[in-house]
Structures are given as structure tokens and as C-alpha cells.
């Protein structure tokens, strides 16, 4: 008969609920400004996000008329990457948690 004692004297917590850890979503927001030419905004959206002309133009018009547009949403890391790229291209961009 083995006299070995268990190394752990307390049982680890076992999670019993069925929650799945999900990454929170972030929104990338581009803001209107009074000077950037419209074709430049469209062009930058096409380059950074790979959007087709029609979608890029639609987002540009949303920025122009509504003052801002959500141009992308997804994981935090990619959202940060896109904000960096938008800044590098001279557009005003921020990111917000998608609650």
C-alpha cells in the first residue's frame, strides 16, 4: 500500500459554468476635419483596410456628413494597428470599446 501523500492538499478551483472567454471588440473611429480633401480620405481607406471604392466612398461621406464614422471593428491589437496607420496617413482617428 502506498503511503505517498498527494502534493496538493487543496483542490484547484474548477470552473463549472459554461462561459467562454471572448475578446472585447473595439471600434476604430475616423473624425471629420475641415481641410482634408475627400479623395484623400477615400484613398487612405482603400489602402489601409482594402475596402472597395464604393465602401471607402460611403465611409468618407459618413465622416463628412456626420462628423465621424466607425470604419472598422474587431480585436484590440488590430484596432491599434489601424489607428496608427490612420495617424501616419494624417487622418484623425481614435478607438473606442464596443460595449
Amino acid at each position: 500500500m502506498s503511503s505517498a501523500q498527494p502534493l496538493l492538499t487543496t483542490r484547484p478551483e474548477v470552473q463549472t459554468d459554461n462561459k467562454v472567454a471572448t475578446e472585447k471588440l473595439w471600434k476604430v473611429v475616423v473624425w471629420n476635419d475641415p481641410v482634408t480633401p475627400m479623395p484623400v480620405v477615400t484613398l487612405v481607406f482603400k489602402k489601409i483596410f482594402g475596402y472597395p471604392q464604393e465602401k471607402a466612398e460611403q465611409l468618407m461621406m459618413t465622416v463628412h456628413h456626420e462628423g465621424r464614422a466607425i470604419v472598422w471593428s474587431g480585436g484590440q491589437d488590430r484596432a491599434e494597428h489601424y489607428v496608427v496607420q490612420l495617424h501616419v496617413h494624417g487622418l484623425l482617428a481614435t478607438m473606442e470599446r464596443d460595449d
Binding site: N32, D33, P34, V35, T36, V40, H89, G90, L91, L92
Partner: peptide, 19 residues
Amino acid sequence: QIALRNHVVARGAFENDSL
């Protein structure tokens, strides 16, 4: 584009949305 934006931001015209 960075130069254009900075001309305006430095003058505070971004907030006014006017030049």
C-alpha cells in the same frame, strides 16, 4: 497630409470646423 493637418490643428481650427 500631415503638414496640411498640422497647419489647421496648430491654429485650433479643428475644433471650430472652420478656417
